[in-house]
């Protein structure tokens, strides 16, 4: 395991009374070499807090975080990590090239080497034209790109990205996804957080779902997508919606393509087709309906939300209504 959290807990305390105000964890999970791990969770779940602990911006209240087999605070661990913070912000008085050269210096790179890498990174992040522009003139998406470039100045083995796709336009998102996939191709490991489920679905190998400071699920993306064939959408024409409904095959609805019957996933398609044809229907298409990560996520989170609705005050309120 490249990055490993062992019962890591962060307790935020009120600065006056020292009473705990919020707790993240305990978190126990690890990131395998060469994978892209997606860290998913709604706002305030604790993604940024976890990442800040992994890069040393926050100290865990309990537990241990190790990286490459050593404590994350070791200097030689840090020189192998690249980090892009959430909403990155950089020195306004520097130009893009100067900024990257500055970070090169922090990694102990000589000036020539730093300059060479800066040129290359500006190029692959699509900022080649803006090397001489001051950071103060950068747009949000450009900041995100220079932030990504900065994270790669040391050619890191592990790249930690907090919402790398935030603030990018669709083209930029595609480019950033490709850059992240390139990292994997080159044998790097990536730990990224995001709200945008489609992006995670497209690039991640594994996901961890975080909810109110706890990891509720860790799985491979295919696993989640596989067990998620929800049904078959059979699109037919030539019969009325009523007669289709009368067959009791599943939910029936009309679309601009014709009538769509949604059957359960375990339906025997041969039998269904025969029955439909006997009614004089023409089959236009049969499509397995897959659950997206988004559906899965909503379902997981939905399950967790259920018990919360049953707090005493609310049930009292609802019983009053029913009386």
């Amino acid at each position: 395991m490249i990055l490993r959290f062992e019962s890591v807990t962060k307790v935020f305390r009120s600065s006056l009374t020292l009473k705990p105000t919020h707790t993240i964890g305990p978190l126990t999970f690890g990131i395998e070499p060469g994978e892209i791990f997606g860290y998913l969770g709604p706002n305030g779940a604790g993604k940024t807090t976890t990442i800040k602990m992994a890069v040393g911006l926050l100290k865990p209240s309990k537990g241990r975080i190790s990286c490459f087999g050593k404590d994350v605070t070791c200097m030689d661990v840090r020189s192998r990590i690249g980090f892009l913070p959430e909403h990155p912000y950089f020195y306004q008085h520097l130009t893009a090239s100067e900024l990257l050269e500055f970070y090169g210096g922090l990694f102990g790179l000589g000036f020539e080497e730093a300059r060479r890498r800066a040129v290359h990174l500006l190029d692959i992040t699509g900022l080649a034209k803006f090397g001489k522009r001051r950071i103060s003139k950068f747009s949000k998406g450009m900041l995100q790109r220079i932030g990504f470039a900065q994270a790669l100045m040391n050619d890191p083995d592990l790249v930690i990205l907090d919402e790398p796709l935030a603030g990018l336009d669709p083209v930029g998102r595609k480019q950033m996804r490709d850059l992240i996939l390139d990292l994997k191709q080159n044998g790097k490991t990536v730990f990224l957080s995001s709200h945008i489920l489609q992006d995670i679905e497209m690039i991640c190998d594994r996901v961890g779902i975080l909810w109110e400071g706890k990891i509720v699920k860790i799985a491979r993306v295919e696993e989640i997508l596989d067990q998620s064939i929800k049904g078959l959408d059979i699109c037919v024409e030539g019969i009325s919606i009523e007669s289709a409904a009368n067959l009791n095959l599943g939910k029936v609805r009309r679309t601009h393509d014709g009538i769509v019957i949604t059957c359960p996933a375990d339906t025997d398609t041969d039998i269904v087709i025969q029955r439909l044809m006997r009614q004089g229907a023409r089959i236009r298409s049969i499509l397995p309906q897959r659950q997206t990560l988004e559906d899965y996520f909503m379902a997981e989170i939905g399950d967790l939300r259920q018990p919360m609705r049953r707090d005493p005050e609310e049930s009292l309120a609802s019983s009053e209504v029913s009386i």
Binding site: V55, G56, L57, M75, D76, R78, S79, I81, F83, P85, H87, P88, Y89, F90, Y91, Y103, L106, F107, G108, G147, Q150, A151
Partner: peptide
Amino acid sequence: ERRTIYTIVAKPVR
């Protein structure tokens, strides 16, 4: 305040 230090703390500097 401007969070420019975030990227610095993560680097191998003391």
